[in-house]
Design a binder for these strands. Structure first.
Length: 594
RNA sequence: GCUGGAGUAGCUCAGUUGGUCAGAGCUACGGUUUUGUAAACCGUGGGUCGAGAGUCCGAAUCUCUCCUCCAGCUCCA
């Protein structure tokens, strides 16, 4: 999508939070510390970011992560010295001369883009360091709280891959040591939950170098979760009036030429040649679904028509951009295309958000935010379609989000040329945000594919299309769920719901009876009667996060009961077998999150 | 794709300056044991040290190319 450049707004210094000023000042301190050890270093830029700051440098000789320690130490010294941060203004000429003298070409380049006659600099201490910067900063370095240098990585100068790559040093900065420690703990916890580590450990998925990078393989347990998710989403969407279809994984290149993806979409897989005709792996389902729409003449009575498919699509993601299950080259979308009359748009947006809301709640992701992408209102010519329709759709998106109590922000100029959209970000158990669902309005593809219906008055009219994916990519969603639940899935999604552990051989028969009963009830249950100690088997089941263990021995046989142990060392105790079964069937049905 | 880092058994890791450095624990397999709420005991396997080429009398260790993964950048109509 072509993004319009947000207009440069005048920075309101008073509105900048203290913590952000502090982080920004920390980046200056970083630059000062770096120059102490590496005086020949050329400086890029150093802004505040979430949780900290960074600064871009061009080192004469590359430095490594080990060097960060001494730099951090020097930063702490500067902070402790509590050097004042003073703003001063110099003329452009003076500034250019200064950068020339100091050998700072990147700074000079930045200056070229600044129109001001008087250029703002910040001076640290007794001219120990000065940097061109509009600020704002805290009054002195001593106001910086707790910092920690994190990592060093390459970053293109001004984010342009054609420009030289600088070394970016990342740091964390918080107002207090406690906050910093808390954040480090969170990072540690996130590392433990990393789906790339947990997934293979729990035998949910794998990758094979030979099958190919970024092509996820779901193992039996992961396949169960995917199946449950799909079953659920199909049932839910059918309830919301979708028709499910199945379309092939490839299509003629002509199809994508017609949809104009071929010309614009750079994630297309290379074409295949079949019988002298060019085909490609489908990177999205839309054109296939459009052809389904065109299969028969449509009346205004047929609309809205909601076509859905859980379909695997293939995209060429550049090698450095793939990431675990989050960014892959083969992904299964829970895709839907709603073909609606223009007068139905508002109602259908509300319906889609209602559906989304129910689904997210069942997934245990009831905390989410919305971002609404609308036109650049000062430049509305580049958008296709009736401005009135746009305006209504934009307003509806916002109104419905607000009505549903979803925290939302409207981003001007972010909409695609063919329609506004709303993105939802779920907030997970570690307070991280994940972009999941999108409702994208599309006023353009109906033109490309001539998607029309006959209205009441006998005239032919264009439909509007809503592209709706709720889980997004099921693989990606699985990855997010793994991290959200730290591998301990709610019962309805757990690959193994109950594991029965007979204490000794004498109890195997009883265990197998229980197994048979529960299998009848459709419970995913196993018996672990391996020749291992009970403790050993409990440990293994705890490690694979099985929700319920049933321990059975003489006591249980005599009373026809089970000893229930819930995940996480929680002993529930003796329970009548049928009572246990009733309880967990209810828990499965309720999709309870424990 | 770019910059940097990493790749030793299924897993987690050890392996000083190239010379018994191919190891440990877990796993797997065989046996003993028949267990009451997070690791019983004994034994046996298992690796072209990511792949290929090169330097050397000799390479897990040095060089080059490639592959894969990780961090970040860029990208994500």
């Amino acid at each position: 999508m072509k993004k319009s450049n947000p207009k440069k707004k005048k920075l309101d210094f008073d509105a900048v939070p203290q913590v952000e000023k502090m982080r920004h000042t920390a980046s200056h301190v970083l630059a000062q510390a770096v120059l102490k050890f590496y005086p020949d270093t050329k400086l890029g830029i150093g802004p505040a970011i979430d949780n900290g700051f960074y600064y871009d440098f061009e080192f004469k000789d590359p430095i490594s992560e080990e060097d960060l320690e001494k730099i951090e130490k020097e930063m702490k010294r500067i902070i402790k010295a509590d050097l004042p941060m003073k703003q001063e203004f110099v003329s452009r000429e003076e500034a250019f001369a200064y950068f020339k003298e100091k050998g700072q070409p990147y700074k000079a380049e930045l200056l070229e883009d600044i129109p001001d006659e008087q250029v703002s600099f910040y001076v640290t201490g007794d001219n120990e360091f000065r940097d061109m910067c509009r600020g704002p900063h805290v009054e002195s370095t001593g106001k910086i709280g707790a910092i920690k240098l994190q990592s060093i990585a390459g970053a293109y100068w001004r984010g342009d891959e054609k420009k030289p790559m600088l070394s970016r040093i990342y740091g964390l900065a918080f107002e207090t040591q406690e906050e910093l420690d808390k954040h480090l703990e969170m990072l540690e916890e996130a590392k433990k939950r990393d789906h790339r580590k947990l997934g293979p450990q729990l035998e949910l998925f794998m990758f094979s170098d030979l099958v190919g990078p970024a092509l996820p393989i779901l193992l039996p347990k992961g396949a169960i979760i995917r199946r449950e998710l799909e079953r659920y989403i199909i049932a839910k969407k059918e309830h919301y009036g979708h028709k499910f279809v199945n379309t092939p994984h490839i299509g003629k290149s002509d199809l994508y030429i017609k949809s104009k993806h071929w010309q614009k979409y750079d994630a297309m897989m290379p074409p295949l040649n079949i019988d002298g005709v060019e085909y490609t792996l489908k990177p999205m389902n839309c054109p296939h679904h459009f052809e389904i729409y065109r299969n028969s003449a449509k009346s205004y009575r047929d609309l809205p028509l909601r076509i859905a498919e859980n379909a695997t699509v293939y995209r060429y993601e550049k090698s450095g951009e793939t990431n675990g299950l989050l960014r892959v080259r083969a992904l299964t979308q829970d895709d839907s295309h709603w073909f609606v009359r223009y007068d139905q748009i508002e109602a259908e947006i509300e319906r889609a958000l209602q559906l989304m809301k129910e689904i997210y709640e069942d997934m245990g992701l009831s905390n989410y935010k919305a971002e609404i992408s609308i036109r650049d209102l000062e430049n509305t010519d580049k958008y296709i379609g009736d401005p009135k329709v746009w305006e209504n759709a934009e307003k509806t998106l916002e109104a419905v989000a607000t009505k549903f109590g979803i925290e939302n922000k409207v981003v001007e100029g972010e909409a695609a040329f063919y329609g506004p959209k709303i993105d939802l970000r779920a907030v997970d158990s570690l307070n991280r945000e994940w972009q999941l669902m999108t409702i994208q309005l599309d006023f353009n593809q109906p033109d490309n594919f001539d998607l029309v219906y006959t209205d009441k008055d006998g005239t032919e009219k264009k439909v509007a299309v809503l592209h709706i994916a709720i889980l997004g990519s099921i693989e990606r969603f699985l990855g997010i769920l793994i991290e959200h639940y730290a591998g301990a899935f709610p019962l309805w999604l757990s690959p193994v719901q109950v594991r029965i552990l007979p204490i000794a051989e004498a109890h195997h028969d009883y265990a197998n009876q229980l197994l048979a009963t529960m299998l009848e009830d459709g419970i995913r249950v196993e018996v672990d009667n391996r020749n291992e100690t009970l403790q050993y088997r409990i440990r293994e089941s705890e490690m694979d996060k099985t929700p319920y263990l049933l321990i059975v021995g003489d006591k249980e046989i005599n009373t026809q009961t089970v000893s229930v142990r819930a995940r996480g060392s929680k002993a529930i105790g003796l329970m009548q077998t049928d009572e246990f079964i009733r309880n967990i069937l209810k828990e499965i049905k309720d999709k309870a999150v424990k």
